[in-house]
């Protein structure tokens, strides 16, 4: 298979970016999107050109590093799939493919397709944890948790923090990410004591990083590779409102 790639190239955070066109030749349908880029990069390197920078790590859809907007859709539009798990057979031979980085004020481009997502780390530091004494591991089943709560928490915990929700949102809102983290901890007994401070502090941190507000368009949940539902945003809104009413924060 052959493709024409229209790739965003940007030298650094403070330089202006532009699109460059490349040819991807002799690509096999079994290759993942990132393997296709590896082939293109090998050609660029042997030709004495600067390769295309992009993030990747596990390449099995669980780490949250890969972050490409393919033809205007974060992770390329295959439902519940990270771009590293997107295979070239899902494209048509000869197709032109546009590849861009996540675009949001809070995710500045570092180089080409690599963006700085440390804003998410700072949001996590503000409340995405539970405060417990260290020591021996507690006995399994010592704390009973209803199946319905365990399932809900686990569904929320599948969030890999890739930031596709921010990239897809017309407001660059991080509500799906923050909602997933708050829900994952707040529905479990271990996270229960700090649930209101967690919601309030994480919303404050999210705002100060420059993410936008949620207008409930549902674009985030549509592109989420882990299919996190909008429910988690509702849960975040509720715990935040109750937290403020209880006088948490300030």
């Amino acid at each position: 298979m052959n493709f024409t790639l229209k790739v965003w190239r940007q030298g650094g955070p403070d330089t202006a970016g532009r699109f460059e066109t490349y040819q991807a030749k002799d690509i096999q349908g079994e290759m993942s999107f990132l393997e296709m880029l590896d082939v293109v990069n090998e050609d660029l390197i042997t030709g004495g050109h600067e390769p295309i920078d992009f993030d990747s790590d596990c390449r099995e859809g669980i780490c949250g590093m890969c972050s490409l907007v393919v033809n205007g859709i974060p992770h390329g539009g295959q439902k519940g799939t990270t771009v590293c798990q997107l295979h070239m057979r899902s494209f048509e031979d000869g197709q032109t493919i546009t590849i861009e980085p996540w675009r949001a004020k809070a995710f500045p481009v570092l180089k080409d397709l690599v963006v700085d997502r440390t804003a998410f780390d700072r949001v996590i530091q503000s409340g995405g944890y539970i405060s417990v004494n260290t020591g021996g591991a507690p006995d399994a089943n010592a704390t009973p948790i209803a199946k319905i709560d365990a399932d809900y928490a686990f569904d929320a915990a599948t969030c890999i923090g890739c930031g596709a929700c921010v990239a897809a949102c017309k407001n660059s809102s991080a509500m799906l990410f923050v909602g997933a983290k708050v829900t994952h901890l707040n529905v479990l007994p271990q996270g229960h004591p700090e649930r209101f401070t967690r919601a309030v502090n994480m919303v404050e941190a999210m705002d100060s990083e420059g993410f936008g507000a949620c207008t409930v368009t549902g674009a985030c949940a549509a592109v989420c590779p882990k299919e996190i539902p909008l429910d988690v945003i509702s849960k975040l809104n509720k715990d935040y409102a109750l937290g403020v009413l209880k006088g948490v924060g300030v």
């Binding site: 229209k6 970016g17 699109f19 907007v69 033809n71 205007g72 859709i73 974060p74 539009g77 546009t98 861009e100 675009r103 949001a104 004020k105 809070a106 897809a168 017309k170 407001n171 660059s172 809102s173 420059g210 993410f211 936008g212 507000a213 207008t215 409930v216 368009t217 549902g218 674009a219 985030c220 549509a222 592109v223």
Partner: peptide
């Protein structure tokens, strides 16, 4: 605030990602 959060670089060919026209034109 939402406009500021989005930044100045638009996507080349942005998708609506399944959002409704009503939700985008409030």
């Amino acid at each position: 605030e939402n406009k500021r959060a989005r930044g100045n670089d638009p996507y080349d060919n942005p998708s609506n990602n399944g959002s409704s026209f009503a939700s985008r034109s409030m």
